[in-house]
Structures are given as C-alpha cells and as structure tokens.
Design a binder for these strands. Structure first.
Length: 473
DNA sequence: TTTTGAGTTGTTCGA
DNA sequence: GTCGAACAACTCAAA
C-alpha cells in the first residue's frame, strides 16, 4: 500500500529540526514541501528590503539541506495550496502559525476554505515559548507590565515550554512540483546589488543559527548581563534574525540554556527571550500595535515633522557620533547593537521630536531581524507610548551614553572613520572640542563631518515640555 | 473595594 | 571622581 501524500507548508519556520508541523507531516506520509511568497497583494506588512535578502539566502539554504525538494510559489496561498491538493490528491496540510494579526486572519480563512474542499489543516505553535492565550492575569486579562508577565505569568504559573523535537525519522519528501519556481524567481534580491554588503556579514540558515548559538554560549553568555551594554564587544547573541525566520526556535535555545548552571547571565538572557514573548503578547491583544499608540494620550503628542532631520538620521549624518555610528551600522550590516538601538531611537523621538512611526518604518526596511511584534513594541517603548511606565524623564544623552558604553571609542571609530583621530575626550561631542584639537585630528565640522543638527541640552528641555503637554490635567 | 508598592536599559545636580 | 536624591503623575498587579 502506498503512503498518502500531505503538504508541509513552510512559513517562518525555515528549519528541519524542532519543527512540529514538519514532524507530524512526516508520520507515515509522503511530504510535498512548499514555500509560498505571499507578496503580490498590496499590504502594509510586506517585508522590508533587508529582510528579503535574508529570506532569499535562508530559502536557498533550506532547499539545499532538503536535496532541492522544496517547491517555491508566489501569490495567493489559498489558491496555490488548493490546486496542489487536487493535483496530488492531498487531504491534509501542515504548517506552523505566525502570530501576526493579518496572518492569523488569513490562515483562518484558508482553514475554512480548505475544509470545504475536504482538506484538513493542522497548525502548530513553533515560534513562541508560550501561546499568548495562556499567559493572562488572574482576572483573565493580558499583562501590561513585563516583570509580572514574565516572572509570574510565564515562569511561575504556565507549564514549561514544549521540548525541542528531533529531525523526523524516515522523512520522505516528494520531488519538487513541476510548476515550482526557483528561489531567484521570487525576486527577493534587489536589482542594484547593495545586498552583498549585508550578506557578507552573516552566515544564513539553520546550520549557521546553531553555530551562532554555540559561539554565544561559549563566549557572550559568560558576562552577558554587563557586557551586553558595550557595542564594541561581542556579548550579545545576534540570534534575532535566525529566530525571526525560524532557523532556530526559542525552544531550542531555552533548553540549551537550561542545561547550563543557572546564574545571573543566563537568567538575564532568558528574560530577553521573555521580552520577545511579551512583544508578541502585546501584538496579539493589540492588533494595531504597529500604528496605534498603546497609551491614547500620546495621540496628542506634539511631534515635529522635519524631512532634512529625518534624512540626516537615516544616513548617519546627524553630527552626533554615537547616533551616526549606529545608523551606519544599520545601513552596512542590517543590524544595530541593542544599546545603540535605544540611543538612536531616543534621539529620533526625543531630541528630534519625529514621530516614532518614522523610526519604526526605517528599521522595518533596514533590519535583518525586522519583526512586527518586537519592532512595534520596541518603538512604542522608546516613545513612551507603549506598555511600560517609562518615566517621562528617561531621555538618553547620546554623549554620556557614548562615554559610558563605548569608553575607548572603538565602536564609533569603526563606523565613523572621519573622526578616527579625535581623542576620546571629544569623540562623542566634537562640537565642544577646541579648534586646535579639531585641526590636529583633521576634523572640519560642516565640511567632512556635520555640525550637530540639534543642541542636546536644549532639545532635551523641549522634549520634557512636550511630555508635560500631554499630561492629564 | 481599597491600599500599597513598584515599574528593562537615565540624567543632573549638589554634597 | 563618586554617590545619592530628585525628577510627575499614573497605571498596574496583587494583597
């Protein structure tokens, strides 16, 4: 008797290990593995340019690890899946959920329609340690503060996260479909090849994800709690893009950490995974998180749109060195160190008073780890409109932050080479350097490096005033 | 229902 | 240079 055919539909689960939908699809079945790029409809949520580059390489890598048996399509998933089911006499589809509001809706529709066709849809949670529905306060409402969400909701009251699954045994992939596109036909790579500078910084794919995790556990985790604040050092995990595309699951990371002797560094890193869960919880219960202030009083905030300031920020030409270093790291590598993300974001929102939405959009387009939940929640947090009682006075001073967290100037110099010769004393505030120091360092403000586009002290005061203005009186 | 303590990541000022 | 206090008011979580 021949085995029945089923479909495994890859989404943001671009891995073979610990893949619950794939694991179940492989039980006594022949599996047609498909990836569908659903980007032909106009949608606010189409992925950013840099994410596309990552996705391209990730798909290439996955396809290779499957011996070229992954079929690629582009268009409406429902009609593509429906056709494939008829063609191969398939009556079961397996996939892992994505917890983004419009995709949750899309998938519900697909399930209903496929059922009418007599096809069963089996869906799984492969990307969150805890499903948002399972983490609620005693009164049944979702948490709005991180610490109780994580410590009580997740750690104390919820069951342990699912344990990672092995590679499915005896998995039998059907040959790729005759109508399958090639990865390059998905047109994820740009016409002008700026993508090379991004992809040379990263090894992409499931194997690379595990290499990255091992490296982190060997080096970074040892002083993670303190070291993660220093952008020139290598204490951060850099796992975010791999997690976003599902090349590694949070469960695999979680249980690797559990094997180690528990300490404050491990606790802190695990809580960062907790922050990712918290962001998804916020998005799940607030589908408009990307566009709508969580705190309505921020609808009254006096944002100031200024195009030249926005462009200067995007290009890393604000004249504030640590900000420019961060924005150039983003442009060159598709990534910014966490500490510097906060600095550049605080600068945009509080010193320039530009709406957080502009920052959210730029990050969305430029980050290899752009993630709807984390990006939206992160920007709302920085702006103060989000789920956090951030004191109104928490405005980062980019000079102080640079001096504190990049004391040797290694980070700034590596991305802002025109300031290379400036002594550390003025590296973060060249506008305060005496003329002779600037001359000796070959820094000519307004010529080969910009004058600062705002006065730090003055703009801080203005920001405080802006926050004052939306207080409930 | 009321009360109480606390809230990821900071800065500045003055002793 | 170092350290502690002050910087709003409000909301949240839990007792």
């Amino acid at each position: 008797m021949t085995q029945p055919n089923v479909i495994h539909w890859f989404n943001q689960d671009l891995r073979l290990l610990d893949n619950p939908a794939l694991f179940d699809s492989a039980k006594d079945n022949h599996v047609l593995a498909v990836y569908i790029l659903d980007d032909l409809k106009e949608s606010n949520n189409s992925i950013g340019q840099t994410s596309k580059v990552w996705l391209h390489h990730s798909l290439e890598s996955l396809n290779e690890s499957m011996g070229g048996k992954l079929s690629f399509f582009r268009g409406d998933p429902l009609s593509i899946l429906s056709k494939l089911c008829s063609k191969y006499q398939i009556n079961e589809i397996f996939w892992n959920q994505i917890y983004e509001p419009h995709i949750i809706k899309r998938d519900e529709h697909i399930k209903e329609q496929m059922a009418l066709q007599g096809v069963i849809s089996n869906t799984y949670n492969a990307s969150l340690l805890w499903h948002p529905d399972n983490i609620k306060k005693d009164d049944g409402s979702p948490y709005k503060v991180f610490t109780p969400f994580y410590r009580k909701g997740c750690l104390a009251n919820a069951p342990d996260p699912r344990k990672p699954l092995p590679l499915p045994e005896n998995i039998h992939f059907l040959d790729k479909d005759g109508d399958s596109l090639k990865v390059k036909d998905l047109e994820l790579l740009p016409n002008i090849s700026w993508d090379k500078k991004i992809s040379q910084y990263w090894n992409i794919g499931e194997v690379a994800a595990h290499v990255q995790l091992s490296k982190f556990l060997e080096i970074g985790i040892k002083d993670y709690k303190e070291g993660r604040n220093y952008p020139a050092k290598s204490y951060v995990s850099k796992l975010s893009p791999y997690i976003h595309f599902g090349e590694i699951s949070p469960n695999q990371i979680w249980y690797k950490l559990k094997q180690l002797d528990f300490n404050k560094n491990i606790d802190h890193f695990m809580s960062e995974l907790g922050w990712r869960e918290f962001s998804y919880s916020q998005l799940y219960f607030n589908p408009d998180l990307r566009t709508k202030n969580l705190q309505p009083k921020f609808d009254r905030f006096p944002w100031k749109y200024d195009k030249p300031n926005l462009l200067a920020w995007q290009k890393g030409l604000t004249g504030v060195p640590i900000v420019d270093a961060g924005m150039r790291q983003l442009w060159q590598t598709g990534y910014i160190h966490n500490r510097v993300r906060m600095i550049v974001a605080s600068f945009l929102v509080k010193n320039l008073l530009l709406h957080w939405h502009y920052g959210e959009q730029w990050f969305w387009d430029c980050l290899v780890d752009a993630d709807l939940a984390s990006n939206s929640a992160g920007w709302q947090w920085v702006a103060g409109s989000g789920a956090d009682a951030a004191p109104y006075f928490r405005i980062f001073n980019p000079v102080t932050q640079g001096q504190k967290f990049d004391p040797d100037g290694e980070y700034v110099r590596s991305y802002v080479p025109e300031l290379e010769k400036l002594p550390n004393k003025y590296l973060f505030n060249p506008w305060e350097a005496p003329d002779f120091v600037l001359q000796e360092s070959e820094v000519f403000l307004g010529v080969n490096y910009p004058n600062p586009i705002v006065d730090i002290k003055e703009s801080r005061k203005k920001a405080l005033g802006a926050f004052e203005s939306i207080k409930i009186t």
